[in-house]
């Protein structure tokens, strides 16, 4: 090594040391890039894995035959997740404008609202939020924030009303116990859940 340096006319000692220092820095840098890149990519894969793969699956469910659904009446519909949805017939017509499907989950902090017939409003007992029959907030924190009860898509086919709701099942046993036949109750839905043997 020294001989070659001499031949090249460089200082005999500085060359190899400088080279070693340079190579040390380059290899250190390469190793750092490799480590950060490799494990960083692995970490990114893990983070993506934890994020839900896709939106919750939804499906259309039977609600009621229109001729059996009286104007002004409501059905307390239970989605497969157990969530309550208030489906109301507001008009005599048979278009979607005559129906509404309001979530019973308060948009403020997620408590359950209920219909107060006397006051003609949906009331949330958690923080005294109130909503009119169309779901618009009229009092309490939801009104201050300009919120409203969320709605669910409805469709009418051959005189039958359907609703689109998430199909995730969370409260199937409770639902199976509570689901009788009649308006608002999908017999197919009922069959999908095992009944509790008493």
């Amino acid at each position: 090594m020294t001989g070659r340096n001499d031949e090249a006319g460089r200082a005999p000692d500085a060359g190899p040391e400088e080279r070693r220092g340079f190579l040390g820095k380059v290899s250190g840098l390469a190793m750092s890039i490799g480590l950060i890149g490799g494990y960083g990519a692995f970490g990114a894969v893990a983070a993506r894995y934890l994020y839900p793969a896709k939106a919750d699956p939804k499906s259309w469910f039977f609600v009621a035959v229109l001729r059996e659904f009286e104007v002004g009446s409501s059905i307390a519909y239970r989605a497969p997740s157990g969530a309550r949805i208030n489906i109301t017939r507001r008009g005599v017509g048979e278009s979607l404008a005559d129906f509404s499907a309001l979530s019973s989950t308060c948009p403020h902090l997620g408590c359950q609202v209920h219909w107060e017939a006397v006051n003609e409003r949906y009331f949330c007992p958690c923080h005294n939020g109130a909503f009119d029959h169309e779901g618009k907030a009229i009092a309490g924190p939801p009104a201050e924030a300009g919120q409203r009860l969320s709605t669910f898509p409805l469709k009418i086919e051959k005189g039958v009303l359907y609703i689109e709701v998430p199909t995730a099942e969370l409260a199937q046993v409770e639902l199976a116990d509570e689901v009788p036949t009649g308006p608002g109750q999908d017999p197919c839905l009922f069959q999908r859940f095992p009944t509790r043997e008493v």
Binding site: V45, Y49, A53
Partner: peptide
């Protein structure tokens, strides 16, 4: 089959 990169992990 469904979770992103689940097969990999």
């Amino acid at each position: 089959d469904e979770a992103a990169f689940g097969w990999y992990l």
